[in-house]
Design a protein around this nucleic acid. Structure first.
Lengths: 220, 220
DNA sequence: CGCGTATTCTATAGATTAATAGATTAACCA
DNA sequence: TGGTTAATCTATTAATCTATAGAATACGCG
C-alpha cells in the first residue's frame, strides 16, 4: 500500500529527472530560457536534426517542462513554469560545484582568458545606476526582443563582427548573453577590446536576471 | 570549437540528470537526506536488493551526489553537498506543480484524509515558541539521532504502535517525519487521535527544516 | 479543394541501462 | 592464518532509450 504510493511518486519524479538526462534536451531548455522559439529555430540553434528536435521536445512536453502555442504552421515552445528555471539553475549549481570537468572547462574558457573578473549581476546593477557604463545584449535580435535588461542595447554578435559599433569609447562596455556558459559575450569582449574599447563580460545572463525578479523589458 | 565546448558542458550536466532519472535512486537520495546510512540500511528501507542498491549508489557516487565513509566493514553514504538538497527540492517543487499524478496522490493521501490543515514549518516555529505544543519526531531512532528539530521528542512510529506514548493530553501534538511525501506522520496522527490526543502533522520534514537554515540538534 | 510547409506520429535498428547472479575485495576477529 | 560479514566488481540478459527514416497531420493560401 505505502510501497505502491512511494513507487508512484518516485516514478513521477523520475520522469522529471529523465527529461534532464540528455545533453540535447538540456541545451533545448537553455535556449528556451531565453524566450519562446519554434521547432525549426531550436533545431538550428542547437544543431540537432529537425526530427530529433521534435522527438526531444515531445519528451519535455510529457514531463511538463514546456508548453506550446500554435501560430499558423509554426509551433512555438516555451518553458512551462518558473519552477523549471529554478530546477535548471539548481542542476547547473550542482554541476559547477561538484563536477571537476565543468569546473575545468569554465576556468579555462570563462575566467582565465579574461584578464579582468567578469561582472556579477549585482555589480552590473550598481554600475548602471551610476550611469557610466554601456550595457549591450549580444544575443540574436529575437531573444533581445523576447526580453532584455532595461537600458541595454541590442548588438548581436553577428553585427558586431561585420561593422564597428556606434558606442562612445569613453564609457566602459559590459556585454551579457545567455548565461554563465554562453560564449557570445566572451567573443564580443574580445572584438571590442581589439577596437579600443574598455570591455568586460557579465558573469550571468538574462535567465539569471529574470530569476532574480529584476525587471525585464520587452520589444525593441 | 564552441560546439565541442557545449557538448562537454551539457554532457556533464546530463550526467546529473541521469542520476535523478531512476525512481530507486531518488528514493535513496531521499533517505540520505535524513542523514548518513550504510548500504544494508538503505537497501532495507528502500526495499531494494542489496546488490542493486550498491549499483545505484555507484551511479550516484559517479555523479558526485554522495560521498562515502568507511567504518569497519560498513560503508556509510551521505549527501555530498547542500546543493544536492536544493536540487532535490527544486525537482519535487516542479513535480508538485506540474504533474497531475503527483498532485492527485498528495491530495488523496496527505490532505483530504486529514480534516485539519497540516502545519507549515513557519507555524510550527511559532507554536513551539509559544510553548503549548508537543513536537514529536516519528522517524526511526537513528534518523532522529543524526539530526532533529531542537526540542522534539523521539517517538518512532514502531514504538507508538506498540505502547501508549507518555505525553500530556492537554497539549496538542505535532508529528513530523521525512518530508511532504512521508507517511509516518500521517499514521502517527491517526494513532494519536484514536487515543484521545489532539494531533496534527507537519507538512514538511527535517530536510526542509535544515534547508531553511534552522538549527538542528544532534544525538539523543 | 489541392498544394506546400511545419510539425508530429509510427516504427525500428543500434546503443545504453537496469537487474541480478557469481566471483572478489576489504576489514575484522579468533 | 582462515573464517565471517559488508560491500563491490564482472558479466549476462532483459528492458529501455536514442536517432532517424517514412507516413501522416495541421494549417494557410490560391
Amino acid at each position: 500500500m505505502s510501497r505502491a504510493l512511494k513507487d508512484t511518486l518516485y516514478g513521477q519524479f523520475a520522469r522529471i529527472g529523465h527529461a534532464m538526462a540528455s545533453p540535447k534536451r538540456l541545451e533545448l531548455l537553455d535556449l528556451l530560457s531565453q524566450g519562446e522559439k519554434d521547432v525549426e529555430t531550436l533545431a538550428a540553434q542547437a544543431a540537432i536534426p529537425l526530427k530529433n528536435t521534435s522527438a526531444h521536445l515531445r519528451v519535455l512536453r510529457q514531463a511538463r517542462f514546456v508548453e506550446t502555442r500554435r501560430d499558423g504552421t509554426y509551433v512555438h515552445y516555451r518553458l512551462a513554469d518558473d519552477a523549471v528555471l529554478d530546477l535548471l539553475h539548481a542542476l547547473q549549481q550542482l554541476g559547477q560545484r561538484r563536477l571537476a570537468e565543468v569546473e575545468q572547462v569554465t576556468q579555462l574558457f570563462f575566467t582565465s582568458r579574461d584578464e579582468l573578473q567578469p561582472v556579477t549581476l549585482q555589480e552590473l546593477r550598481r554600475l548602471m545606476q551610476e550611469g557610466d557604463v554601456t550595457v549591450i545584449d549580444v544575443r540574436p535580435r529575437d531573444e533581445y526582443e523576447a526580453g532584455h535588461i532595461p537600458g541595454a542595447l541590442s548588438v548581436p554578435l553577428t553585427e558586431l563582427k561585420d561593422r564597428p559599433p556606434r558606442m562612445p569609447k569613453s564609457k566602459e562596455v559590459i556585454a551579457y548573453c545567455r548565461g554563465p556558459y554562453c560564449v557570445y559575450s566572451l567573443e564580443a569582449v574580445r572584438l571590442l577590446r581589439k577596437r579600443g574599447y574598455r570591455a568586460r563580460r557579465a558573469q550571468e545572463g538574462l535567465p539569471e536576471w529574470r530569476a532574480s525578479k529584476l525587471p525585464v523589458a520587452v520589444g525593441s
